[in-house]
């Protein structure tokens, strides 16, 4: 029976230390809601998750698009002008190079493969954390829930090959 008591103590100790650690270092499981651009911008306030039609509107207004899928998927086809910025680009303390090319004070649309894909939400959390920590903005981030498949299926502008920072588009 001692084994079970000892096991319970180990698990309880793990949970208690975890509780203390979580108070010291917070993690996010969902992105923050985007901050409305303000009445002066004369733009409608959008939710975090946006529809294809709303994404097309933002594209036509010149919003930055970020593709959170892997490199092979990106090069096979992406939203025209979208930057390739998968979650792996944020590992460690490095600031992804692409961030210097993106206007963090404007709207940003992140997408992945749609469906159960979590990568776009995860990238938005990373953008918001870097934006807050380094003063880069990224307070108007949105996620195209339907992902790239819906964008391509709707006949919206796409490109293949490397991204804008690698000589492509």
């Amino acid at each position: 029976m001692a084994i079970f008591y000892q096991a319970a103590v180990i698990i309880l100790a793990g949970i208690l230390i975890a509780g203390a650690d979580s108070l010291r270092r917070s993690v996010k499981t969902r992105p923050d809601a985007p901050v409305a651009p303000g009445a002066a911008a004369n733009a409608p306030a959008l939710e975090l998750d946006i529809t294809l039609a709303q994404a097309v509107d933002l594209f036509n207004q010149g919003a930055a698009f970020i593709d959170a899928r892997n490199k092979a998927e990106y090069e096979a086809g992406h939203v025209q002008g979208a930057f390739h910025l998968p979650l792996e680009a944020f590992s460690g303390n490095a600031v992804p190079e692409a961030l210097s090319a993106i206007d963090g004070n404007g709207p940003v649309v992140v997408y992945c493969a749609g469906g159960d894909c979590h990568a776009s939400h995860d990238v938005v959390i990373k953008l918001q954390q870097l934006g807050a920590n380094l003063g880069l903005g990224f307070r108007q981030c949105h996620v195209l829930k339907e992902g790239y498949p819906a964008w391509a299926a709707a006949g919206q502008p796409t490109a293949t090959g490397p991204g804008p920072l690698e000589g492509g588009q």
């Binding site: 698990i11 793990g14 949970i15 230390i17 979580s22 993690v27 499981t29």
Partner: peptide
């Protein structure tokens, strides 16, 4: 989910350390 993000690794470290030093080994 947030608690699990900390509780799983801390329990792994605790149980792993006890196993390595051989204290409460079977419980670990």
């Amino acid at each position: 989910a947030k608690l699990a993000a900390f509780a799983v690794p801390w329990t792994e470290v605790l149980a792993g350390a006890l196993l390595v030093v051989g204290l409460w080994s079977r419980a670990a």
